[in-house]
């Protein structure tokens, strides 16, 4: 299945998605290994490293953009991110970390579970 989206930071990636229906606070919810440490979050204990992270948007501290950059430097960043509506923290963090970022996919976020190939604004969902 091919899903169109909007490209915010261009690039290509391939991998398994990790889908969250809830926003992510990059600074407060993650450790440097890419693990979600917020017990109340639906992705608690999941690791975002090497995944295609799918989530509505980020919330919280403005420093979250550095967290994205830090993860990239530690090789624990997601391969790409897909947001419902990309926010400034996610967009700026992905821009300096060179992580492909897409938003407004023409499907529900939960439909993006599985293995995907991303090329700029196109998401190929492999079933």
């Amino acid at each position: 299945m091919i899903v169109e989206a909007r490209s915010i930071v261009r690039g290509s990636a391939e991998g398994y998605t990790l889908v969250s229906s809830k926003p992510i606070n990059f600074l407060a919810m993650l450790d440097l290994n890419g693990r979600i440490i917020d017990e109340k979050h639906e992705l608690y204990n999941e690791n975002i490293a090497g995944k295609i992270l799918v989530f509505p948007n980020s919330i919280g501290s403005s420093v979250g953009a550095y967290t994205i950059y830090n993860l990239k430097r530690h090789n624990t960043a997601p391969k790409a991110m897909i947001c419902k509506e990309a926010d400034i923290t996610t967009a700026s963090g992905c821009a300096i970390a060179n992580i492909p970022l897409l938003d407004r996919p023409k499907c529900r976020l939960e439909d993006l579970k599985g293995r995907v190939i991303i090329n700029n604004s196109i998401i190929m969902l492999q079933i």
């Binding site: 490209s7 915010i8 990309a86 926010d87 400034i88 967009a91 821009a95 938003d103």
Partner: peptide, 24 residues
């Protein structure tokens, strides 16, 4: 960075600002 956040917030263009406050 400005292009990425401009695209994500549907900006038509950039404008000059008078003040920035930086965190991090």
């Amino acid at each position: 960075v400005l292009v990425a956040i401009g695209e994500s917030t549907d900006a038509e263009r950039l404008i000059p600002i008078e003040w920035a406050h930086v965190s991090g």
